[in-house]
Amino acid sequence: MSLSQELLRAEATRRILLSRPDLAARIDPSTTRGLLAAQHLVDADEPGEVLAAVVMRRFDPVSWVRGTCEFALGLTPEQAATWRRSFTRTVFLAGNPENLRERFSFDHVAEDGSAAWTSPAPAAASAPLRRLLKLFDGTQAVPTHPAPVVEVPGRPTRAPVRRDLYLATAGVTVAESLVSLNHLLVESVMDGLLAPGDRLVLRPVPRPAGIATPFAALRIGAERANPDQLRCFAYLTEGIDHDQA
């Protein structure tokens, strides 16, 4: 389906109001800048604001997507609600979880040890970790092949669904992709779009546009070259029938 600026603005507004209904009176959903300003109304250092920290030795898409879903599924409803109010803010740090386990406790560690998560908490809680490590940074895009299939871990609580997850790669670094994927995945878990047993096909494409299957969720941000324009960074499709797949 085609993604117009009107559609992107409407979806972005929907996400903001789902996370922070209290901001309804303070944002201007008619312009891109007005929408983007909403996220800056929430300062990470304000009382009540929380952020999660992810320590990553490398970005392994399959392991990381599984780990991210499993981490989000493991949060209590209260933790999830508080994190949602902070727009699921997350900091990605370069580090080897194996070297840090004696000094720091993680709430979840990827099966292959390539990443570890701390639950959403006030910024001060992750300050020692952030002082020791550096932001996970890389100038390259995520690798575009092959298209890996990821199964959301855990015992299914409903009939599993298969979805495609399209990820924008044109002009996007791996560090930026992490941000997009993370918001989309954890919020989709919170909204029940993703559940244990579901299968995701990760499809990196220059731009997720003109995709036949309608979307269930989008990750939207500003165009780098033109901050008045919105852009889709990640596109989670509706469930795809197994027979069709």
Binding site: R58, A94, G95, L132, D137, T139
Partner: peptide
Amino acid sequence: CLDLREHGGPVYLDATRFGLPL
């Protein structure tokens, strides 16, 4: 060693096990 070259990132000396920053 923490090697992010495959992502276009840097290589770090990692002695975080001893509490020293990357």
